[in-house]
Design a protein around this nucleic acid. Structure first.
Length: 739
DNA sequence: ATGATGATATTTTTT
DNA sequence: ATATCATCAT
């Protein structure tokens, strides 16, 4: 057997990493250095050169997309589908283990998976039942408390409140939440991981079995692992195992959701003799783009260290555009897209990247009026749509009557006269009986409920029972189809307001198609089709839904862009406060993560990279000025080329060659807008005070007016004071003196 | 049960 | 500016 197809396409560093001896291995793979290639070729090499059985390989990723891509590429390399090879997401693999060993894991056989929305609903219910004020006990925060503790491997019993009553309450809620999940037979995402960790930890025989089986464990995007994922890896690999992990500390951008870059260093400590390989040759970007990215990321501290290089050409300079405002910014991008398309370029080669989703709107408006097709990534996915989740709730109730969350979701949808007070009675009965709502419903039928409510509830129970009977034995898609018809969901949405309702009916029909096309993959193969489908719906939110492959400009957040590449990239909104984001600017860790995000953004570009910012931006309805992003200043100047606005209205304020230099040159961070304030729309009419005007305040000293809101004495001004920073003041009380 | 009203927040996202 | 959400009135 020849190894040529496996080793021949690799460069030296890649080949070294792929053929590394069977010891713990850490591959530091820079952006565009062939990370996935190394991972897939390593697996092929293990099988073909080391004689490893596919049965002994476990490859873990973070997203379904990455897992799918890896599977395809391995198939391609080996020429056969490696059936017994386990490739999946952390959650997918954990789920697979829990399904196999539900009894040992202390779960019910038909346990269902809660997505984060389900989880939040459940928490809200819990808070209400506890009669806690939602403004004091914010569901989101409770959810965060529970999830981050699970992510760190902590159960309620592991937590100490100390003298903190708030914390004590949180711990109590965490415990109550766990009990509720237990009763309802549901498991949230974090629970999948923690539970499967505990399963292996507490069942030595099982652990032994899987350790022996999975001699080769590989992890993708290792810098994104959280504590429990890493603990799980250590457990399954064993102290003297040889896990193979690939990651890039410079692309760690998920600290805020529990990822621990430190795991990279920790890995080297925990696995003695771990070999480190660096992949630094980049096959994606021009030399200039790489130099810009390298220059930027060099500002971070505590890096493992890595410098990307290319044998390709230097390419064009990084272009910088200083827009007047966000509409001008969008106009500029629009014009560049037009030029590109006019020269025969494809729209799909262009990506607009931004820090936060709200920024897409202005671009969308501009593209709409310029008739440029675009596609916005992110937002609601198929299985997250309300009407789909309603339908799934019915299906889940068929599978597991104890699923209270699903019960509550659809008991009165379409409306069948089971209102809030009937539900209260049910909840009360369920609580005293210590059972599910479904059981309580049976008890309440005669006693506790009025005749009318009883009849309605009887109708619902009958509906579910009839449906269950009717649907048993049907093909999956027919089950879904019958459910939609019998429950009246389709009819319900047909009668909605035309536009909304129509889309929902279409989505429900799409759900039937999804069911028709569904075949359980390895992980779910042993489950009944409906249960496999439900697990699939929960774990795969449905990104890969077939979309018309029209030639579109691609729009997405920087986070979403990670792992992708585009010939032309626009990094928009390069302003301090927006990017880096205001909320990350204060602490070093946060700022460095933003910088990595910028690094990720820059390294998405293959040929051309544009940085754009707006001097004035309307955000949340108010206009404000901001400084150009510090990341612009951190990019080596000789790589940048500023594009002058079409209208030469810039007033030379300082001698700087670039607009942003001018801005930085001003003391106190304040600067005068370099254009006539009168040109601006929406300027407030406060006599004597204009945007950019200098003012003096009795207490705060001198500053520059950044924005004006309203008029008359109630008007408010935002002033950037040289000593005190930016403040909002009410004209009536501020006693500002124009200078 | 549906729609109007007002309060509130508003970084990033996968599973 | 705008979206979401709870509350209240119809």
């Amino acid at each position: 057997m020849t190894l040529d197809p496996i080793l021949e396409p690799l460069n030296e560093a890649q080949r070294a990493a792929v053929t590394a001896p069977l010891a713990p291995v850490l591959v530091l793979a820079g952006a565009g250095s062939g990370k996935t290639r190394v991972l897939t070729h390593r697996i092929a090499w293990l099988i073909q050169a080391e004689g490893a059985s596919p049965h002994s390989v476990l490859a873990v990723t973070f997203t379904n997309k990455a897992a799918g891509e890896m599977r395809t590429r391995i198939e391609h390399l080996l020429g056969v589908p490696p059936g017994q090879l386990w490739i999946g997401t952390f959650h997918g693999i954990a789920h697979r283990l829990l399904r196999r060993h539900w009894r040992e894991a202390g779960l019910s056989e038909s346990f269902q998976i809660l997505d984060s929305e389900d989880q939040q609903r459940l928490i809200k219910k819990l808070l209400k039942a506890q009669q806690l004020d939602e403004s004091r006990w914010v569901p989101r925060e409770v959810q965060w408390f529970i999830n981050s503790n699970k992510d760190e491997g902590r159960r309620p019993k592991d937590l100490k409140a100390g003298n903190d009553p708030v914390r004590a309450q949180m711990i109590r809620l965490y415990g109550l939440y766990e009990e509720t999940c237990e009763r309802n037979g549901v498991v949230d995402f974090a629970e999948l991981l923690l539970r499967s960790f505990e399963l292996l930890r507490d069942q030595p025989a099982l652990l032994q079995h899987y350790r022996q089986r999975f001699r080769h464990v590989l992890v993708d995007e290792f810098q994104d692992t959280n504590a429990i994922q890493y603990a799980w890896l250590r457990l399954i690999a064993g102290a003297d195992g040889h896990p193979y992990v690939v990651g890039d500390d410079d692309q760690s951008v998920y600290r805020w959701r529990g990822a621990r870059v430190e795991n990279l260093q920790q890995f080297q400590r925990d696995f003695a003799g771990a070999k480190l390989y660096r992949l630094e040759q980049n096959y994606r970007s021009t030399g200039t783009i790489l130099a810009a990215a390298n220059g930027l990321i060099a500002n971070n501290s505590g890096r493992l260290g890595k410098t990307l290089w290319t044998s390709g050409e230097r390419g064009e300079p990084v272009r910088l555009y200083a827009a007047f405002n966000e509409r001008d910014e969008a106009e500029f991008v629009t014009q560049r897209i037009r030029d590109h398309v006019a020269r025969g370029g494809m729209r799909r080669d262009i990506a607009i990247l931004y820090r936060s989703n709200a920024q897409s709107r202005v671009f969308e408006e501009a593209f709409l009026s310029a008739r440029i097709p675009y596609r916005v990534y992110g937002g609601l996915r198929f299985f997250e749509r309300a009407e789909i989740k309603d339908a799934l709730a019915y299906l889940r109730l068929l599978v597991n009557r104890r699923d209270d969350a699903s019960f509550e979701r659809i008991v009165n949808l379409p409306t069948r006269g089971i209102g809030a007070k009937s539900l209260d009675t049910l909840r009360e009965a369920a609580k005293t009986a210590g059972g599910s709502l479904w059981e309580a419903a049976g008890l309440c039928l005669g006693a506790g409920l009025g005749a009318k409510a009883s009849a309605a509830l009887q109708g619902f129970i009958g509906l579910i029972e009839r449906l269950a009977a009717e649907v048993a034995g049907l093909a999956l898609h027919e089950q879904v189809d019958r459910m939609l018809a019998v429950t009246g969901l389709i009819e319900f949405h047909r009668r909605e307001k035309a536009d909304r309702g129509e889309a929902r009916v279409e989505n429900l029909e799409e759900l039937v198609s999804a069911a028709r096309g569904f075949s359980a993959d390895g992980a779910n193969a042993d489950l009944p089709p409906l249960e496999a489908f439900l697990a699939h719906a929960a774990l795969e939110s449905g990104e890969g839904q077939a979309d018309a492959w029209e030639d579109c400009v691609q729009m997405m957040t920087l986070h979403t862009a990670k792992g992708l590449e585009f010939p032309i990239v626009f990094l928009s909104g390069m302003e301090d406060g927006l990017f880096p984001h205001q909320r990350s600017i204060t602490d070093l860790e946060g700022l460095e993560e933003e910088r990595r995000l910028c690094y990720v953004g820059m390294t998405r570009a293959m040929k051309q990279l544009y940085l754009t910012y707006a001097e004035q931006r309307r955000l949340h309805g108010i206009d404000s000025y901001s400084q150009p992003s510090r990341f612009i200043k951190e990019t080596p100047e000789e790589l940048l080329e500023e594009i002058r606005p079409r209208l030469q209205v810039m007033r030379p304020v300082a001698a700087g060659r670039f607009a942003h230099e001018r801005a930085f040159a001003r003391p106190g961070g304040a600067y005068a807008p370099s254009f006539a304030a009168g040109r601006l729309r929406g300027e407030s009419e406060v006599p004597g005070f204009r945007l950019g005007a200098r003012v003096r305040h009795g207490k705060f000293g001198e500053g520059v007016i950044l924005s004006l809101e309203g008029s008359g004495p109630q008007a408010r001004v935002q002033v950037n004071f040289e000593r005190q920073g930016t403040k909002w003041l009410v004209m009536q009380y501020a006693n500002l003196e124009p200078l």
